[in-house]
Amino acid sequence: MTPSDSGYVDYFAELELDEDAKPGEVRKAYRRIMKDLVNEIAAVEITEERRARYLLQMAKLNAALYVLRETESRDEYWESRKELIALEKEWIAASESRDPNVDRYRKAYDAKLRDFLAKYVEDLMLAAGRDKECVEASNWDAAHERHAFRILRHYRQSLYREILERLPFAEVTPPQIDWKERQGAVTRLLSHGGM
């Protein structure tokens, strides 16, 4: 994944596969990785932090199988991802060249990004958890789904923020932060009695 790809969930990478992997390879890789994960979960004491991490890993693997095992859904996903990456580049170029239509590019990209993350990070991950093949391999049940709602929403928004960090500033002018000044500001704030 290149820096400009990061944040756009890559299901091929989740299954350690190349993008031209065949459905048979997808199933094989899914079963192998899911089996290892289930064994790992069985061997450790489950804390709240571990539960969240394992649920997310499971949800990602389930979604990877769900999306990649059919040619149609796989192509749709991959095209959508490529289109999003292209839109990001267009917006950055428009911003750097001070294109007067920069806001149009930003809006088009932002809408596409939100749709992509909502579909491939939240909706399909939950839908995959109800799929027979995924349920059999991962033992995913209603309790998992209940916990997963919040975890997936957090994951989706974290990805959104991660992507946003590398993009041009839109809501605010590009800040010129002087971290020496910031250290001084924090010192002053901590000295302030009313805080």
Binding site: E171, V172, T173, P174, I177, A185, L189
Partner: peptide
């Protein structure tokens, strides 16, 4: 949509 001036947003945060 307006782009907020960062100098004021920073001071507001502090």
């Amino acid at each position: 949509p307006a782009q907020l001036p960062w100098e004021l947003v920073l001071l507001l945060g502090d």
